[in-house]
């Protein structure tokens, strides 16, 4: 067994272990952390497939950003675990059916000669750049899906704002821009007051 297959088996075993812990861990925060581990191992496997850009993006975007969101959601939902576990047996048949469909799909893809990559990977030289290969394709041949991706991002942005943006009423806050721009005339009013006679004033 060469080093590459050893590394692959280590990452694959780590990923299966992490995946199992994601669904078995009692604490949802631990589940999220094991999901991070699963992402990291998946990134290692992608690197073994020479998909370097995707591998690093997986760490950057999923581990760096998406998991932060997952943790926020776990925190925000204020999950009560006992309540969560209540419906387990009621939903079990549904979940099992879904799992069976997934396994069937995997068997179909991996077992089929047409869809499975049977010829093996071609190893590239040290100066091979996967990111260049990707760049040549995304922005020319796949320009239409690329622009669709932009629209999907736009929809996500608008939806997130529409769902979560709440204007609070009665919040007192400073606006530094307005504070700097203020003029003397806005704040200070000189009232012309008629001068009184000094003599009578003092006498009284």
């Amino acid at each position: 067994m060469n080093v590459e297959s050893l590394v692959f088996y280590v990452f694959a075993a780590l990923m299966i272990f992490a995946g199992l812990r994601v669904i078995t861990a009692r604490n949802p925060v631990h589940s999220a952390m094991f999901l991070v581990l699963a992402f990291c191992s998946a990134s290692g496997i992608w690197m073994l497939l020479e998909a370097e850009f995707l591998s690093i993006t997986l760490v950057l975007v999923y581990v760096g950003a998406v998991m932060v969101l997952f943790l926020f959601v776990v925190m925000m939902l204020d999950i009560n675990l006992d309540q969560l576990r209540e419906g387990f047996w009621r939903w079990f048949p549904f979940g099992a059916a879904l799992a069976l469909v997934m396994v069937g799909e995997m068997v179909y893809v991996l077992g089929n000669r047409k869809t499975a990559a049977t010829e093996g990977l071609v190893r590239h030289a040290a100066d091979y750049s996967n990111i260049k290969e990707l760049g040549r394709l995304i922005y020319t041949d796949y320009v239409y899906p690329f622009e669709i991706a932009a629209v999907v991002l736009l929809v996500a942005m608008v939806a997130a704002i529409a769902l979560t943006l709440r204007r609070r009423i009665g919040v007192k806050s400073q606006n530094p821009g307005k504070q700097v721009l203020v003029k003397k005339a806005d704040r200070l009013r000189i009232v012309p007051v008629a001068a009184e006679k000094s003599g009578s004033d003092r006498a009284a």
């Binding site: 932060v68 969101l69 926020f72 959601v73 996500a156 997130a160 979560t164 943006l165 709440r166």
Partner: peptide, 8 residues
């Protein structure tokens, strides 16, 4: 929920 908005 605003933290969530910033994150997304």
């Amino acid at each position: 929920v605003r933290y969530y908005l910033v994150a997304i």
